[in-house]
């Protein structure tokens, strides 16, 4: 009576779970070999990996599991041997990582740009700054005087590390509460997208990676924010690949990790990075050692959609379109804007 009904229910539940599990796993392509990579959320969100990894995966018949976390967490995962390879962009922290014996074969592979982003009316006058350091100085002066605000990542990210290095290069320590007060210097400890949204909301400045900025523009979330300073060599965001120490961690797929490093620094991999265009921009500039940019792509790859978005939402359409045209004309791989 009641016993058999309970059994039927239990069997039904187990059956549903089993079917879900099977279906979920069947829909996954189970590849024979796996490479676990830790990278940052901004790298993942740029879409680069979705673009380049399929080529690597089919060439080496493997699957790359990408785990996107903050820079600090990625390095920590490397230290604990939970991933096989890292793709990060936090040079100072990377050096400490390698020096500590946690990783090997640190190789630079590409860079993108940080940009200084600010409100339409540019209260700190950063558009007229001569360099990134000058722009930051202007932000500081205007911030402490109450004319401008700045939102900082204030987390362990590469962007934050860059921001700190610029502050310290002009002699400031952003932890001095008096100088960097909450009135103008905001520290939410959040991701890049959210920080940009906050800037839009507060008419504030920030340091952003260009990819996240463009993606935010693309979804029309930050109509009143513009790039006010870019191209300074201080704003270069260098990416490297590091192999996790396979002597400490025997289970690491070291062959496949090395294959990945070799491939991404090879001409084939580097060309692929160069060909990645999103929001009407080539987002990353490959610069692995020995990469010849002989096959530099010139000319603009028009993906249409981005143009529509910028025309409608940009507060300064001319500046944006000009920037686009400049990139269209300049050969790839060369420094821009007086770097």
């Amino acid at each position: 009576m009641k016993q058999s009904q309970m059994v039927v229910v239990a069997v039904a539940v187990v059956a549903i779970l089993a079917v879900s599990a099977a279906a979920a796993f069947v829909l996954t392509n189970e590849e024979p070999k796996k490479l676990r990579m830790a990278t940052t959320t901004s790298t993942q969100d740029s879409g680069l990996l979705d673009y380049i990894l399929p080529t690597f995966e089919s060439k080496y018949n493997c699957k790359v599991d990408v785990i996107a976390v903050g820079s600090g967490q990625a390095l920590e995962m490397g230290k604990r041997g939970d991933v096989d390879v890292l793709m990060v962009h936090s040079p100072a922290a990377e050096q400490i990582f390698v020096d500590g014996g946690h990783g090997t074969n640190r190789t630079q592979i590409m860079y993108n740009w940080f940009v200084i982003v600010g409100p339409d009316n540019d209260p700190a006058g950063t558009r007229n700054a001569t360099s990134a350091k000058d722009a930051f100085q202007r932000i500081y002066d205007n911030g402490t005087a109450g004319h401008a605000k700045f939102v900082s990542r204030s987390d362990g990210s590469g962007t934050y590390a860059k921001e700190l290095s610029i502050w310290s290069s002009i002699g400031y320590n952003n932890t001095t509460v008096a100088a960097f007060s909450n009135d103008w210097y905001k520290q939410p400890g959040r991701g890049m997208g959210e920080v940009l949204d906050m800037c839009e909301d507060m008419n504030a400045y920030t340091l952003s990676d260009d990819a996240t900025y463009y993606s935010r523009v693309d979804v029309a979330l930050i109509p009143h924010l513009n790039i006010t300073k870019q191209g300074d060599s201080a704003l270069k965001n260098q990416y490297s690949v590091i192999l996790v120490n396979s002597t400490t961690w025997h289970h690491i797929n070291k062959t496949l990790a090395k294959d990945f490093l070799d491939w991404i620094s090879s001409n084939a991999g580097q060309d692929l990075i160069k060909s990645y265009v999103k929001y009407g921009h080539q987002l990353f500039t490959p610069n692995a050692p020995g990469y010849a940019s002989a096959t530099a792509i010139t000319g603009f790859v028009d993906i249409g959609r981005f143009e529509d978005v910028t025309a409608g939402t940009s507060g300064v359409p001319d500046a944006k379109l000009m920037a686009k045209d400049m990139r269209a004309v300049a050969p790839r791989g060369e420094a821009m804007d007086g770097a």
Partner: peptide
């Protein structure tokens, strides 16, 4: 696939 995995993980943990 994501929905099925949600069901699977949540279902197993609940049970």
């Amino acid at each position: 696939q994501v929905t099925l995995l949600s069901l699977y993980v949540s279902g197993c943990a609940t049970i």
